[in-house]
């Protein structure tokens, strides 16, 4: 084929196929990126479906970053986690306590990957607690299962693993700091199932469930 007809063919294909595909793709990105705050209700379904379709291909139009966790003036100072394991008939021992002092007084050069992953699992489970309860439960089971098998106690296997997750908050107006438990979880390693899961326990509940407050020792 001569260069001129080939060039014409390529231009025609480009205009007929690639250009519409690009416009469609950009339209999909914009539709998926339009948040509910400015999106008319009739676009909700299309936007959500487009977002899921793009996500299935690993395409992300954006993320809602740095949003406030609540409508109050209490802002997060630190998310703290403490995971303990217990061999049958023994005391609990710490399996994972990334920040014994929480909030940490250290400079944060980088967040340890395991701490980041555990934090993301806990936050994702919390956000999905109502809308996606199975996913939420699955994430907690995965945490329990993982810490059951990742034993620090040599050849002794764990009977149970407990996880306490709490938030230290500071009030933007007054500067007052408070501690707000977010989750208490207990996982039976032998039966591989959650035996206790309490969202936002009170300090009294936490004292009873955990045998003490996890930030006090």
């Amino acid at each position: 084929m001569d260069a001129a007809p080939r060039s014409w063919l390529w231009s025609s294909l480009r205009d007929a196929v690639l250009l519409p595909l690009l416009l469609l793709y950009i339209g999909a990105l914009l539709l998926a990126a339009t948040p509910p705050e400015i999106r008319p209700a009739w676009l909700d379904r299309a936007s959500q479906r487009t977002s899921r379709a793009l996500a299935a291909l690993g395409i992300v139009p954006g993320h809602a970053v740095f949003t406030s966790p609540s409508a109050s003036d209490d802002v997060p100072r630190a998310y703290c986690v403490r995971i303990q394991g217990r061999v049958a008939g023994s005391e609990r021992a710490d399996l994972f306590r990334p920040e014994p002092l929480c909030p940490t007084p250290e400079i944060r050069w980088s967040l340890p990957p395991l701490q980041r992953a555990v934090h993301r699992m806990l936050v994702t489970a919390q956000l999905g607690a109502d809308r996606l309860p199975q996913q939420s439960l699955r994430l907690h089971r995965d945490l329990g299962r993982y810490w059951c098998t990742r034993s620090y106690l040599a050849d002794r296997s764990l009977a149970e693993v407990s996880l306490a997750w709490w938030l230290v908050r500071v009030n933007y107006r007054t500067g007052a700091q408070t501690t707000a438990p977010q989750l208490y979880l207990r996982f039976d390693c032998n039966r591989q199932q959650i035996v206790s899961r309490v969202w936002a326990p009170t300090t009294e509940q936490l004292r009873r469930l955990a045998g003490g407050l996890p930030w006090e020792d």
């Binding site: 914009l30 990126a33 339009t34 954006g62 809602a64």
Partner: peptide, 17 residues
């Protein structure tokens, strides 16, 4: 642009912002 569009307009009723 869609990253700033999504994150920017998500905040228009955000208390903290």
């Amino acid at each position: 642009c869609t990253m700033y569009y999504l994150s920017g307009f998500t905040r228009i009723d955000d208390h903290g912002w």
